[in-house]
Every structure is written in structure tokens, then in C-alpha cells.
């Protein structure tokens, strides 16, 4: 009879451990595992995938009706929204500074600082703040956000090759975590990590965003790049071993499948269910590729994905 002996995969490296939250806030620690996702038999997994909820500094104009229905009036006030999100199980809040985008209102330093202050006092979970993606604008507002949250170890993003110096400088100065974002490419992700650490950012102050492609919209590219990053990191390359953050909600809910109510084929089924499943499927798939922090938008997905994570921890 053939005797089954499980071949174990012993990696030499491990994912860096990153802790969000300090200065009296609750903390959330991600990373630290020395195995591929949730393979407890191969190694140790000290921290589970964390779940954050995304809120915006202005009531979203382009969100799916499914989301707006789920959240109701709270979207009109970021602080109330944040509190509600924590009630729904958010372990961290991702604040999207939507209103600062030149096309969305172009608000400035004062507004960015004010809303950061507001969220920080409204909730005690860690905060993640994402800028507009317009480098010049972010260089203007993110230093103010950083200063407002000094010592509270928030995560600040996104930084790319063209604006990483600013984000890194303020993260170092104020004790925060930077989120480098690269366009679904292992080498570019690594290159950015090199630039960040060369600029003096400690290796445990980086959460990397490989760019999230939702289910049906590039999921497979994100999946494979993450899997490769993780394998490179576990293989001993410290500059690819950063924990990974995936802004799942943003990309999943932007798609027609999650957003459009009318004029669709019957075979797509009920819109509300479909949208939520779309977000959940994106999350569970990317968790299999190494996601350490998933950002979601719908309260139901937060509950269900959270429950799945608990079960994966065994």
C-alpha cells in the first residue's frame, strides 16, 4: 500500500509583520506568516487577514444603489459613517479623500485635515487614508493628513514612483505606514519597495497594494502577481515580503455587475445578491493569493468574509 507522506514546504523567509494603530488607538497586526495563505500545516500564521471598510469624505455620487441602500443616511457624515462601519465589524476604516480630487470638488488641506481629525475622534480602530491618485494634489494634502494623525500609526496611500518621497517623508516624520501602489507587476512592486526603504522607511511600515482587479476585471492578473510576490517574499526576498492590502470593494463595486440595475441579461440574476457575491468572491480569491488586509464596502460582505477568515484560521 502506498504510504501518504505530506511533503512540507519550508520557506526561508516570512511576511513582514505590520501593526496599524498606536497612541491609544486599537491596533491591528497583519503579516508575519511563513507559509502560503492559510496552510497551517506548512508553517505558522500569527495574524489573520484583516477586514477594513471604505468610507468617503463626501456622500458618494457614483456608488451602486445596493451600497447606498445598505448604508442609508450615514454616508452624508463621514464620522457617523465610520462609527456605523465599526458596528458592522470593520477592524479598520479606510477613508477615501474623494472630495479632494480635482474633478470631484478639489477640496484642500484644511478639509483633508478636518475630516481626518473627525474620523480619528469618532472611532478608535486604525485608520487608512487614501488620497486622490493625482500626485501633485496628494503631495499637498497627505502631509496635512499625516500631521493630523501624528503618532497614531495610520496607513497613508497611495504612493507611486512619482510621489513616494513625499508620502515616505511624512510617514517617517509622523510614525505612519505607507501604501505603495504598483500596476499589477512584481518587478515594479519590488522596485517601489526598494525606493521606499532606501528613503529610510522601516520595512515594517509598508503595506503594499499590487492594484486590485475585481472578479472578471483582471482578478487573475492580481491573483498571480500576488502569488508570485508572496512566493518571492517567502523565498527570502525581504523587499517583496510586505503584507498586501487589497482595495476589493472599490474595484468590485465599480463594475457593471455590481452597479447596473436595468437592461441586463436575465442570466445575471438578482442585482443585490450578485453585487455582494461579486465583492465576496473577489475577496476570497485574493485571500488565497496572499491578501493580508481586504477593504470592503458592503456590510454583508464584511460579515461573511470575516466569518470565512475566522474559519480559515482553523
Amino acid at each position: 500500500m502506498p504510504s501518504v507522506e505530506i511533503p512540507l514546504e519550508k520557506w526561508t523567509g516570512q511576511v513582514h509583520q505590520v501593526t496599524l494603530g498606536a497612541g491609544g488607538r486599537k491596533t491591528v497586526t497583519v503579516g508575519g506568516e511563513n507559509t502560503l495563505p492559510y496552510l497551517h500545516f506548512d508553517g505558522t500564521i500569527p495574524n489573520k487577514t484583516a477586514v477594513a471598510i471604505e468610507i468617503q469624505d463626501i456622500a458618494p455620487a457614483d456608488w451602486s444603489p445596493t451600497l447606498l441602500k445598505a448604508w442609508g443616511d450615514v454616508v452624508n457624515d463621514p464620522a457617523t459613517w465610520a462609527k456605523k462601519a465599526v458596528e458592522y465589524g470593520a477592524e479598520a476604516i479606510l477613508l477615501n479623500l474623494k472630495s479632494a480630487h480635482p474633478d470631484e470638488g478639489n477640496t484642500g488641506i484644511a478639509e483633508a485635515k478636518a475630516v481626518t481629525d473627525k474620523i480619528l475622534s469618532a472611532v478608535d480602530v486604525p485608520l487608512i487614508v487614501i488620497g486622490t491618485g493625482v500626485a501633485d494634489k496628494d503631495n499637498e494634502i497627505l502631509p496635512a493628513v499625516s500631521e493630523a494623525a501624528r503618532g497614531q500609526r495610520i496607513a497613508i496611500g497611495n504612493c507611486e514612483e512619482k510621489n513616494y518621497r513625499t508620502v515616505v517623508a511624512v510617514c517617517i516624520a509622523d510614525g505612519h505606514i505607507a501604501i505603495p501602489s504598483s500596476p499589477v507587476d512584481l518587478n515594479l512592486a519590488k522596485q517601489l519597495n526598494i525606493l521606499l526603504t532606501d528613503a529610510g522607511l522601516p520595512i515594517d511600515a509598508i503595506l503594499m497594494d499590487p492594484t486590485t482587479g475585481a472578479l472578471g476585471y483582471g482578478l487573475e492578473y492580481t491573483y498571480s502577481v500576488m502569488e508570485r510576490l508572496r512566493m518571492a517574499g517567502l523565498g527570502g526576498d525581504k523587499l517583496t515580503a510586505m503584507p498586501i492590502i487589497n482595495n476589493v470593494g472599490e474595484d468590485a463595486w465599480k463594475q457593471k455587475e455590481a452597479k447596473v440595475a436595468q437592461g441586463l441579461p436575465e442570466s445575471w440574476g438578482d442585482m443585490e445578491t450578485r453585487g455582494i457575491i461579486w465583492e465576496e468572491q473577489t475577496a476570497i480569491s485574493l485571500m488565497q493569493a496572499g491578501s493580508n488586509l481586504v477593504v470592503l464596502r458592503h456590510p454583508q460582505s464584511v460579515a461573511k468574509v470575516g466569518a470565512a477568515i475566522t474559519k480559515l484560521m482553523g
Partner: peptide, 17 residues
């Protein structure tokens, strides 16, 4: 239900590309 089958079939399509 279609609302569940469609995402699952899409997930399969993605992974097996």
C-alpha cells in the same frame, strides 16, 4: 441562482485563463 452562478463561473474563467 443566476446571481450566484454567474460570479462563480466568472471566477472559474479567471483562474483557468
Amino acid at each position: 441562482s443566476p446571481a450566484v452562478a454567474y460570479p462563480l463561473l466568472t471566477a472559474r474563467l479567471n483562474i483557468y485563463t
